[in-house]
Design a protein around this nucleic acid. Structure first.
Lengths: 337, 337
DNA sequence: ATTTATTATGTAATCGGTTACATTAAGGAT
DNA sequence: ATCCTTAATGTAACCGATTACATAATAAAT
């Protein structure tokens, strides 16, 4: 079945395509008789304008795109919520796509988005700025979230991130102030930008108080619950056990606690546990997890607002570079609230 | 800054647009010299093809769209995961958009998607089929998930859903077989299709065993934790308390249990609790929640596969109407595992 | 009655690609 | 040397809309 085009409508209605276009776009200067007649034909033929053609000639998509490593986590969902809110307020549409974190996928997704969206919000650990250049050349506004920028001139790109360093620093400092001296850490993946920043926060807090950073107390993880569980196993084999542990995200903290509970140890008395992110499960788990609260949706809000500022030329070519503050929330798992 | 088009490349390279097109599409019949020369210019000019124009003339988008009420819940995330998997396998792209469940938004989102995607997967409680007609006219394959279809001829539309009725029936039957006679229920919203089906499952199980359905034991909810918590408050005010309760989703079950625990009652000894969905928190909560496990991502898998079958004409115009089986998973909250 | 302003509609260029068909050039067969 | 393939490239139509500009028709002003 052939698609109905504006030409078909024009022919059947006995008018020109221009008139049909005017009718469906509610433009002025169409006499009522013509308008109703055309609309009748539109209905008869079940005509609907082709958006591609429309966007092509209007040079506007009225939609912005978002590229995330995955669409499945609490964290990303919250970011999306923030973006979505702003996008809806502006009567735009939001397209979300996922990249699975591998370079080819990112490039493919970006290629697909290009031309289809008027602005882009990208979160992708380890993003190579070269990939972005074509976008920037097309003067499509782009905002990068929580990512490390390879080869990048930060001054030429919009950037919004959680202040991972500070959050980690603060919660580790809290542990230290409550007399913990041997503090272990569960790290994230080596190359993960956020993981690194959180690790740096830990290190700096330890150094500030002249505590020794014992590499035996550094467990490797990958932000999954399983890796936290495994860290728990390794912890249990330690002869001298640290009295506290900072997991660089909540999922790992929970995996860790599951193992510790299985072994019959008490949290926080045998070991105090802190996480990072404040995902919803944190407050339902027993014991309730002390963690770093991240106003996740705010990342999305800020990013989306920046996009629209750019689209509306309210930016005079400047770029933003925002670090969002976190705050620590003390519950049961670290003992001292 | 003007965008670089294929014409600019052709001019600068001293060839025709056709040749440039052939080069960037890796078509045969381009001599190596020409190819490398054109590619050099492409790089110089930082040219990237405009996807809109490309899709318009190719009449193909290589992407499929997904419309969800929200992008924020575990449930939707899982569905997306299923769809995403199939889409990636087919080297297509997935665009996800949310509708917020209101008719205008749905229509706007659908309008936006139309022409931009080659297939559509829609989940939206209370979907009016009239909205879909233009899509169907455009012979864009559409699959509806877990929704009630107004004005619909089910034979003309692809449909995939959880077997809500059977899942609810089974878990309530389980409670009955373990000697519960007074079984309460926390319902979902009145118009929510899934909520209704689950309620019907409950009713039918009760009737099958000749148990009285006491309307005092019916609590109203809206699938949120808060509404479960409120149901807990109402439950506590009852003089004769049922010995078991079926929450039509896990979030409400958890809200309910929080309240019950606060009141110092014991689960499952004072009251057995069952949920529906098997969201991740279910197994971390204390007590671990007995619930109906839903292979959520499978909905997405089936739906996406159907889309591609249609696109590849492997469907000879037939439509699917699939109900996906659930299975009950018995943990601590209902007592008898 | 003629000129002028205004409104309604049509014509055709345009957006940025793809691709059927035409044309040219080069190599092989006779 | 001529003819025939075949490979490489170019020309122009096309995808389906929007819109600047041209034109026709009507009403108002002189």
């Amino acid at each position: 079945m052939k698609n109905i085009t504006i030409k078909d409508v024009a022919n059947k209605a006995g008018v020109s395509v221009a008139t049909v276009s005017r009718v469906i776009n509610n433009s002025e200067f169409v006499i009522d008789d013509t308008r109703t007649h055309v609309l009748k034909i539109v209905k008869e033929l079940r005509y609907t304008p082709n958006n591609l053609a429309r966007s092509l000639s209007r040079k506007k998509n009225e939609s912005i795109g978002m590229l995330l490593p995955d669409l499945f986590s609490e964290f990303f969902s919250e970011v999306i919520r923030g973006v979505d809110q702003v996008v809806k307020e502006n009567k735009y549409h939001l397209f979300v796509s996922s990249s699975h974190n591998n370079k080819d996928d990112i490039e493919a997704a970006l290629n697909m988005m290009r031309g289809r969206v008027d602005g882009l919000i990208i979160m992708s650990p380890d993003l190579d700025v070269d990939i972005l250049n074509p976008l920037i050349a097309k003067n499509t506004p782009v905002v990068i979230l929580n990512s490390k920028l390879k080869n990048s001139n930060h001054k030429l790109i919009n950037y919004v991130s959680i202040n991972n360093f500070e959050g980690a620093f603060n919660i580790v400092e809290h542990l230290i102030k409550h007399n913990h001296k041997d503090i272990a850490i569960i790290k994230g993946e080596e190359e993960n930008f956020e993981a690194i920043e959180r690790y740096n926060g830990y290190i700096n807090a330890m150094k500030k108080y002249n505590l020794v950073v014992n590499h035996k107390y550094e467990f490797h993880g990958n932000f999954t619950e399983e890796s936290g569980y495994e860290a728990g196993e390794k912890y249990l084999q330690l002869k001298n056990k640290p009295t506290a542990i900072f997991a660089t995200n909540d999922s790992m903290a929970i995996g860790f606690m599951i193992k510790i509970k299985e072994a019959g140890l008490d949290i926080p008395n045998d070991i105090a546990v802190c996480g990072f992110d404040d995902i919803p499960i944190s407050k339902y788990f027993t014991p309730k997890l002390s963690t770093v609260h991240v106003p996740i949706s705010e990342i999305g809000l800020i990013a989306a607002n920046k996009i629209f500022d750019s689209l509306n030329n309210e930016t005079n070519g400047s770029f933003i570079n925002t670090l969002i503050d976190t705050n620590i929330v003390l519950r049961e798992s670290c003992g001292n609230h």
